[in-house]
Design a protein around this nucleic acid. Structure first.
Lengths: 176, 176
DNA sequence: CAGGTTACTGAGTGGTTACTCAATAACCGA
DNA sequence: TCGGTTATTGAGTAACCACTCAGTAACCTG
């Protein structure tokens, strides 16, 4: 992730990555077999970061509605909205045409996220069709937010978070 | 754009692009000087496509509010939401760490788009702070939408457009 | 301490890359 | 038809790429 963020994915060769990690480049091949699988592992790693963040926040939240909001908050918290994370994420996203397996991973992850969100919203009393719509919109909003953050390092995290929370406030029937 | 979409940007070498265009690869160098400048030209091209779409739609629209909606519609119309366009756009976005000039272009384009949108909203009677918020949210929404469309070719354009229009309906004080 | 598994390295290799350079072909105005 | 600009090519080059392979070191178990 450090390599991709500083050099760009195009110049993040196996050699450069190995140099950065201070290991021999063959070790990467040993553990990950080839470049595509290394990149898949990176993508999965990012998802795991986010998953961990979501889990503890949802656990900590009281009401169903607070859990739904926790899922959103987790995806825009400072730890996740780090430059390394979002830049790498976008870079991997852009490789989808040449690495279809990444598309599959993304599909699975995005789907799970969305269904969790819808579940908590419904438990919180939001009508299904409304919950689906909010989940769609908030997912797109967060994707866009990651993208923007990747393009502009100087973007203020707090202001981005405000955009999300403003949306939630206006589109959820009351809440914590 | 065809190369990037089918091969991915990583394998879209000058040679492959030249082959696809049925020209000698030196010609690319002759006209664009080097790879970064070629890619900048592609990015600018995408923006011009969108700009043209926005212009005629805004001109065709009657009320200020209709103009604001036209700006949004233009960015999610079938011509723009083509696989070639969105995939290439994401791919170029991912090159920002290694091609900072792309960040500058994106910054300029995104800013102009946003200020146009805010202008029409205000002319249409939306209070400034409210207009800013809607413009922020809709921009992120559309960015996310392009990203999703790039990741999943099978995504239905009509449904994506519905997500945007639903948002507009609920967040704009009446409209056309 | 023997022996098998795991961790790690260095030296290659064939292929591809962006880009240079010198040359030729086409065009176009005077 | 001349002369200069523009369009286009092919051959070449140094650097880099992902990946292979054969070998060594470390470790861990019985």
């Amino acid at each position: 992730m450090q390599c991709i963020t500083s050099l760009g994915i195009h110049k993040s060769s196996m050699q450069k990555i190995a140099d950065r990690a201070e290991i021999n480049s063959s070790l990467i091949v040993h553990y990950f077999k080839d470049r595509p699988q290394l990149l898949e592992a990176v993508y999965t790693h990012i998802y795991q970061l986010m998953d961990a963040e979501i889990r503890w926040r949802v656990k900590a939240a009281g009401s169903p509605m607070a859990k739904a909001i926790a899922i959103c908050d987790a995806q825009v918290c400072d730890d996740i909205l780090r430059r390394e994370v979002v830049v790498t994420w976008v870079a991997l996203f852009a490789l989808i045409p040449e690495l279809p397996s990444l598309a599959r991973l993304d599909y699975i992850y995005a789907k799970r996220l969305r269904s969790n969100l819808v579940h908590h919203l419904q438990t919180g009393g939001v009508e299904r069709s409304n919950a689906l719509q909010v989940a769609d919109e908030i997912s797109l909003l967060i994707d866009g937010l990651w993208l923007r953050k990747a393009a502009d390092a100087n973007l203020d995290g707090d202001q981005l978070r405000k955009t999300v929370s403003d949306y939630l406030i206006q589109n959820l029937p009351s809440s914590a």
